[in-house]
């Protein structure tokens, strides 16, 4: 949807439209400034009493001190990344396995894989995480392992989503690929492993990386079951310094930077694969909605 004005939705602005846009710009800027002032003003006072302004430098100073980073933020980032990285690798393996299972020519295998995928997609991640956290203790008397609960829950949910992405990728491949494989005498399993999967994985890489952003973000659910990830550590800083609001804002900023980096990686991969001529866009274009719409739903 590109034209001279950058959009086909409206004409290139003439003098009147330019003037109107300018007025709207100014009105918008004033409203934003007013909202900004409101927030600034409210942050400067505490409803419960004076001397607790959120702009108090004492509340922000901890984030400039090495100790805070050494003891809280860096271990928090490490905890988040460790759980997310391990879960990402496991989710890829689990997802590929489920996708292959669901496309198996052996009916019972396909049914079981389909049931597994649908189950893990339907159950909220948090419900799964709480179950995996409490179950070992309640059922076997083992020590609760929050790390494992976070990683496994992330693996099951995101693995199931990735399985469907991979399946969509395989189904979007031209039929000739499978037929050619069969014609030269490959078994079904060989066709899947040697011909279909490599192409589908590469075509769907942007969508898969987008799901990994979701995974990284969802690792923050570990906060609720007490895993020492970034949000939990931010909370610990707040407990020590009484600066919950600044802590939340700093943690949010760190999360945004981490996710933008991962999104940037996804875009870079997409550009690279597009140069080579095969992308998620060309694979998915049979759909009414482009792949972006599908991934947008993954929250």
């Amino acid at each position: 949807m590109k034209s001279a004005s950058g959009s086909v939705l409206y004409d290139v602005p003439g003098p009147r439209a330019r003037a109107r846009n300018m007025v709207l710009n100014v009105i918008g800027a004033v409203l934003i400034a007013a909202a900004g002032w409101y927030v600034y003003d409210k942050f400067a006072q505490d409803p419960k009493g004076p001397q607790t302004s959120q702009w108090d430098p004492e509340k922000w100073k901890p984030f400039l001190e090495g100790d805070t980073w050494d003891n809280f933020l860096l271990p928090g980032i490490e905890g988040t990344l460790k759980a997310a990285a391990l879960a990402a690798v496991l989710a890829m393996a689990f997802g590929t396995l489920c996708a292959v299972g669901r496309m198996s020519t052996i009916r019972p295998v396909a049914w079981i894989a389909a049931a597994v995928i649908e189950f893990f997609r339907a159950v909220p991640l948090l419900i799964m995480m709480i179950f995996l956290w409490l179950a070992p203790t309640k059922l076997f008397g083992a020590d609760a392992n929050v790390f494992l609960a976070v990683v496994l829950a992330l693996m099951f949910y995101n693995g199931a989503v990735i399985a469907e992405v991979i399946r969509a990728g395989v189904q979007a491949l031209p039929r000739g690929q499978r037929e050619a494989g069969a014609a030269i005498g490959l078994t079904n399993a060989q066709v899947m492993r040697l011909i279909l999967l490599p192409q589908a994985l590469r075509a769907m890489l942007p969508a898969i990386v987008a799901q990994l952003v979701v995974l990284l973000k969802d690792s923050a659910l570990g906060y609720i079951i007490g895993y020492a990830e970034l949000l939990r550590q931010g909370n610990n800083i707040a407990t020590n310094n009484g600066n919950l609001v600044p802590a939340l804002l700093v943690i949010a900023a760190i999360f945004i930077v981490m996710n933008l980096a991962l999104t940037g990686l996804a875009n870079w991969i997409e550009r690279r694969t597009r140069r080579r001529g095969r992308t998620a866009a060309t694979v998915g274009h049979a759909d009414v909605v482009p792949p972006a719409a599908g991934t947008g739903a993954a929250l």
Binding site: Y38, F43, D46, K217, A220, L221, L231, L248, F255, I256
Partner: peptide
């Protein structure tokens, strides 16, 4: 989109309600 929902909801209570 890049902020965890857990954090967004936490902020609603401590930022939006208590502070604002």
């Amino acid at each position: 989109r890049n902020t965890p929902l857990t954090l967004v909801i936490t902020f609603m209570l401590f930022g939006l309600s208590y502070q604002l």
